[in-house]
Design a protein around this nucleic acid. Sequence first.
RNA 1: GGGCAAGUGGUGGAAUGGCAUACACGAUGGACUUAAAAUCCAUUGGCCGCAAGGCUGUGAGGGUUCGACUCCCUCCUUGCCCACCA
Length: 861
Amino acid sequence: MKYPFQKIEKKWQAYWQKNRINQAVFSKDKPKYYLLEMFPYPSGKLHMGHVRNYTIGDVLARFKKMQGYNVLHPMGYDAFGQPAENAAIKNKADPAKWTKQCIDWMREEMQQMGFSYDWDREVATYLPEYYKWNQWIFLKMFEKGLAYKKESLVNWCSSCQTTLANEEVIDGGCWRCHTKVEQKDLEQWFLKITDFAQRLLDDLKFLKNWPSRVITMQENWIGKSIGVEIYFRLCDKGGRPTDKIIPVFTTRQDTIFGATYIVLAPEHPLIKEIIKGLPQENKVLEFIEKVSKETKTIRTAADVKKEGVFSGAYAVNPVNNEKIPIWVADYVLMEYGTGAIMAVPTHDQRDFLFAKEHNLPMRIVIQNPDEPNLKVEDLTCAYEGEGNQVNSSQFNGMHTSQSKEKIADWMSANPPKWIGPASPKASAEASEISHDKSHGDLSERRREIMGKKTTHWRLRDWLISRQRYWGTPIPIIYCDKCGIVAAPEEDLPVLLPQKVAITGKGGSPLSKVEKFINCKCPKCKSNARRETDTMATFFDSSWYFLRFCSPKYAKGVFDKEEVSYWMPVDQYVGGIEHAILHLLYSRFFTKFFNDLGLLGFSEPFIRLLTQGMVLKEGEVMSKSKGNVVDPDIIIKKYGTDTLRLYIIFAAPPEDQMDWNERAIEGSWRFLNRVWNLIENYEFKGNDSSSSEDKESKDLRQKTHLTIKNVTDDLAKDFHLNTAISSIMELVNAIYVVLSKNNNNKSSDLAVKEAIKTVILLLAPFAPHLSEEMWQRIGNKGSIFKESWPKFDSNAIKQDTITFIIQVNGKVRATMELPVDIDEEKLKATALAESNVEKWVKDKTIKKVIIVPKKLVNIVVG
RNA sequence: GGGCAAGUGGUGGAAUGGCAUACACGAUGGACUUAAAAUCCAUUGGCCGCAAGGCUGUGAGGGUUCGACUCCCUCCUUGCCCACCA
């Protein structure tokens, strides 16, 4: 008989809603458990990726609930963003209406999946009651100097007509539409995430329950390098050192004596000044012009030949007063370090290739201990390894493992070996060399030293301005008299105007809405203008997990007491694609709130599970490939529980899973087998007396072993797929007993216990079926009010064990023997076994290894 | 170029130092059926053998160990992340 999933699923979904089974109530009586899945972008339709993500989360949430935790399991919508705006342009619809419609559809689909969300806590980021707090947070950051406006080269997507954060540029393209990203000079709002770089890096060590690859990805992204900023001095046309300084950053200060030229990035602000009036001027300008036309992707492709030109100018190396030429080349990037490098062709492969190409001088300063007395003429590539210093003045003979530190200290503490004008004073001109304050503060730079130990970060400040309509308005006002002024807190939210013409072209749509733009300056009351950019939507999602704790709280961004109870999130489940973006931003926001004194912790997510993608025949499901499997169709055919079970069973949660239309039949068959356990078996009636026959005992043992295995799998390492295998094994064992006994009452008690256990263990995976069966075997109320079964250690205890008998490590027999058999007897029994005897006779027994309760290995020679 | 994963039957996968391939899909054979579907039963890594049993087998090669899918070294392959990062 097939189980009637249509009826059952509707029935229990209605029951859960009516009885508020999933409502999370603030209560300190029970331990809390906050389980969160990454909220979706409301596209209007759940795809298999969502189904997998939310099923994994739901299994864990329901399991924790049955274990007696007070579970918070909320859901919401990341509702601002370009897709809705683009859909609105396409359909000539209002993005707000469109978004609301999509949310309604998605909510219905999620309810149809039977996910145990507390729907009273639903949040949607496009609602003023939510984005008001985005604006509040922004103002707090502005107040603390963490939100600032700056003109700089930024990533620009011509297709999306907006700027992008560094984290949103993937392989040189826009993360949404893959259009090649251009560099544009624009004035934009940034968040100073770089102020948190050290803490974001250090605190990764607390995230013991995050996948190591996410940790590594974040480490790489933050990208700390420790080195030395070395101060080269620019020479005038007569070749004498001036007081202008060119700082270069290196992590290889041990090679400073081998620096034979300097290279500036083509965008370096000092170049034009350096080349003025020199014969090379035009050639250099032409080169800069040429490079500026290349996209970053082309320029940074690894196999491209390095190109460059001599600037005509020279600089002086502070450690030995050596005059070396300044080049301009495309292999040096303005974004990293100081935009200038010292080139050591003998010990850096890029410099080596460039020097060979342009016939630049080389000098060996590190000798490879395995290949000493290397000469420049013999080099076919740079030697980048460790070794002993040569040609390095007082450091000669020292190994790089020591010299690195020694040279850094020496440069930081000693004056440069200038010849020429006396120690130069800090000049305003010189401080313009640095293009970004985060790369080292020139005003503090001491000119009395050769260099300074410095740390550089790959992490850049977070660009949050978007020239789009569908987002949170940045609450800033521009006044001709007062400059940049924060919108007053009492005026929040600065509402996003309705009925705005959106074309997707020609800058921020809000800039054309006179009513929105024109306002009074909060300070001087004269006419002023509002900021027309909106916030990147990653801003919205960087704190939504906090809002869930008190979603309707009107007096502040969140209720401190509720947050201190529920937070941090105990288990977060989501896609690996957010390994950097969302997860880094959320960590940053949490630290910021912690600094404000609003939170008593600085990491938002204790445990993280990144689920794998759902593929079809090895390919990502996508509309363009036409290989999308619609969850709705599967649900209509097999029901939600089958879909949920299959998606968990098919692969471990972290791995990719390949959608297999046929394999889902197995899950469907299994649920029917479970259903038929009570259809075919007379469950009601008096329990017959417990029997001590072997069959009952074995089944009881299997039941309790299954409880142990499933509990471990769910609690420890997310082995959700094997949890289901264990339940399947138990069901198989029940059928074996039933078929043998033909409903013989002697094993009745054990069978009943086993069936009951199956229903309970299956509840997190197949909640509807379990509820129905639980009721049908005579229980009242929801199964989720039941406690998770506990195994009886006596039932698991075995009297006998199958010992493995090996001879020279090869299995020659297995023997069923008492657990507590003593070693001598075990040895004797094993040796007496006929097959073992065959392998042992005529040979000398060298050794017998006994592993208690497991095996005997007889080593013969 | 650097980093991190992973590599097991026809397929998804299990086993984290102790019986390799649990559980499931598929396949083959059988029962039931007029027939099919559904269901149930049996078999299912390869080779040898009537059988008992044996040999072989977890990407390749080496090592540690009484014993290695598991630990170590070298290499190959695939996936992901970062990348002219100085």
